[in-house]
């Protein structure tokens, strides 16, 4: 509330027609942890069919932004709409791939069990998982190259394989807007390829992906839009417009050496 009162200019992003229908439209989002603001006055409109990389230094509020956008943590202020409606009314359209480290992998479940969780919404309250659901879940494991590991307890999988299980679980529901929290962290080359393939397919199907990404080197290759964040939004837009050395410098400050920056820019084709 206070953030809203203090805001000098009224934000107009949600009043436009385009923003009303956008996969994700955020207006003036502020979030704090223990009396410390971690996301400050963030407005952002995600494009249709966009692969958006959310980049920024450690502690920039990237994961917090995603969790707040999903309504998982309370926000101080701000409005969030998904395809023009409040996020709580659009749950069926939203897929989520959390950070791999956020769960206990010693849980008594197989890879197939975890992917089946993606179908629970479809199955509904109190109804049992049927054979058809299991077969459906297996087909999604196949899509990420994990069908052979369906019956393995999830703790017996490598980090990359665990990530692919999470990805398959998100695919198992037919969402239109996907949130992914650092899916590329600590994965092997095969998993990286699998994730990139999935991203491409999602884009071809007209879906939108908002993905927290830690690696500046690969961001321009994998994504076509960027949201650069350091507590406050630094820049957002199509990759070639937003992902500039100036903006990165503003977000990362001294944490990015000049040589790193110029290296990145040559990669981005600038």
């Amino acid at each position: 509330m206070i953030a809203k009162l203090l805001k000098l200019q009224p934000s107009t992003s949600l009043s436009t027609d385009a923003a009303k229908k956008a996969p994700l439209a955020i207006d003036g989002l502020s979030v704090s942890y223990h009396h410390k603001p971690v996301v400050w006055d963030l407005s952002f409109v995600a494009p249709e069919k966009g692969l958006v990389a959310v980049v920024g230094p450690n502690g920039a509020g990237k994961s917090t932004f995603i969790k707040a956008a999903l309504g998982l943590i309370p926000k101080l202020s701000g409005e969030i709409t998904v395809y023009g409606k409040p996020v709580d009314k659009q749950r069926k359209l939203i897929g989520y791939v959390p950070q791999r480290g956020s769960v206990d992998w010693d849980f008594p479940a197989s890879a197939l069990d975890v992917v089946t969780m993606g179908l629970y919404g479809e199955i509904g309250w109190l109804k049992p998982v049927r054979k058809g659901h299991k077969e459906q879940a297996l087909s999604y494991l196949e899509k990420v190259g994990m069908a052979d590991f369906a019956d393995r307890q999830i703790g017996q999988l490598s980090g990359g394989q665990q990530q692919r299980v999470f990805l398959a679980r998100a695919l198992a529901q037919d969402a239109s807007l996907y949130f992914m929290d650092e899916p590329f962290v600590g994965v092997d080359a095969a998993t990286e390829r699998a994730i990139i393939n999935v991203l491409k397919k999602l884009k071809d199907q007209g879906k939108t992906v908002i993905c927290v990404h830690h690696d500046l080197q690969s961001a321009p290759d994998y994504f076509d839009h960027a949201l650069i964040l350091n507590v406050r939004p630094v820049a957002s837009g199509p990759m070639h417009e937003a992902f500039t050395s100036e903006n990165l410098q503003r977000a990362y400050g001294g944490r990015l050496a000049p040589s790193e920056l110029s290296g990145l820019m040559s990669l981005a084709g600038q």
Partner: peptide
Amino acid sequence: LFMKEFGLVCFDPDYAASRGW
């Protein structure tokens, strides 16, 4: 009766919340 829902929330409460449970 609630085994499916309990299991989901025990394993990954954030994901469950994101799905509207």
